[in-house]
């Protein structure tokens, strides 16, 4: 038969899963570059090892079969990069590899691969190492250490199943008076607040922080503008976190930080822009996205203020993921033809 028979529609928007994923990877590259500039070869090694572990795990489970997707869809690459960005820069590399493997294995493969997972794989991996290696995951190092391009942070190179070297002493020996505690931990346990501007840009001071919130915002804005990321979710997460923080602040200005600190510290920005927006694990309905984002923002603040740990973004997003099917059920789009008629004079 010489004529082709296809089902309508016969044309197609210029987009695709691979294209979306590839663009997300590209948008992450500036963030990675800045992160490496902050932390040197340790950060580079961490990004490479964690991403490689994710790709290896993906390949492994694909070979086992009954998985959808393939390595070329870039989704495991995204998981790897995001996971590495949530870990301390000096996180022991072998632990990073474990995190990567668990992220793909427990976070994605057991659900059936791309599109089927319930939780954000990167956060599943991070959750696992948080439970398995509670000390290492809480051990941060200050940024912009002298010699960071020639020397690894000692904990990076820890041998498997060995206790990593003490980075606090190492940091103190390199640079006087810096703190290896994260700004969030210092607020929580010492009552010291870092400057918002320093947090936002991550440019000055030797802060023990993750990638720059400002850069994350910029890269996320680019993605949203290209239509590869739904702006509603970060807007809802950041909006609800800021609102709740602003509402709580006057109750106890001694203890509660102001909204700016809440937004720019810890992993909230990365979580709001890149983790909560993971398409597979967030609602498809526009109204659902608002609810989901607001829930994550509020939970983050609540966990930070009242939990035992300084950071709460990860748990907030995982809870949001778990609530997604329920949120979707109650936020189905309004049916055409059921809205009350409001006549306009044409």
């Amino acid at each position: 038969m010489s004529v082709e028979i296809r089902s309508a529609p016969h044309i197609k928007a210029d987009s695709g899963v691979v294209k979306i994923m590839r663009n997300v990877v590209w948008s992450l590259l500036p963030i990675c570059a800045f992160y490496i500039w902050q932390y040197g070869i340790s950060a580079l090694a961490s990004l490479v090892v964690v991403t490689a572990a994710c790709l290896a795990a993906e390949e492994f489970f694909l070979r086992l079969g009954r998985q959808s997707g393939d390595l070329g869809d870039w989704s495991a690459t995204i998981t790897g990069i995001l996971l590495a960005l949530t870990l301390p820069a000096g996180f022991p590399l072998w632990m990073g590899a474990v995190a990567g493997f668990v992220a793909i294995g427990l976070g994605k493969a057991i659900f059936g691969g791309i599109g089927h997972n319930l939780f954000n794989p990167a956060l599943v991996g991070r959750g696992f190492v948080q439970a398995a290696f509670p000390t290492a995951i809480a051990t941060y190092t200050p940024s912009f250490m002298p010699g960071r391009f020639s020397e690894f942070i000692p904990s990076s190179l820890a041998l498997p199943f060995m206790t990593p070297a003490d980075t606090t002493a190492w940091a103190a020996s390199h640079l006087d008076g810096v703190s290896s505690a994260t700004p969030l931990a210092r607020w929580k346990f010492e009552g010291v607040l870092a400057s918002n501007w320093d947090l936002l840009t991550s440019l000055s001071g030797h802060l023990a922080v993750g990638p720059s919130p400002l850069l994350i915002l910029a890269c996320g804005a680019y993605l949203a503008w290209r239509g590869y990321l739904d702006w509603r979710i970060p807007a809802a997460v950041l909006g609800s976190a800021a609102l709740l923080a602003a509402a709580l602040y006057p109750l106890n200005p001694q203890h509660f930080p102001e909204p700016g600190f809440v937004l720019f510290s810890g992993g909230l920005m990365l979580g709001a822009v890149y983790m909560a927006t993971d398409m597979v694990t967030s609602p498809v309905t526009p109204r659902g996205m608002w609810v989901y984002g607001a829930l994550i923002g509020a939970l983050t603040v609540i966990i930070r203020y009242s939990g035992g740990l300084p950071e709460g973004v990860m748990y907030a997003i995982l809870i949001g993921n778990a609530a997604t099917p329920m949120i979707e059920r109650v936020t189905q789009p309004p049916a055409f033809g059921t809205a009350p008629t409001k006549e306009t004079k044409a």
């Binding site: 997707g69 398409m279 498809v284």
Partner: peptide
């Protein structure tokens, strides 16, 4: 691909 729930 399986639905990636992009919401488009």
């Amino acid at each position: 691909f399986p639905c990636i729930k992009c919401g488009k």
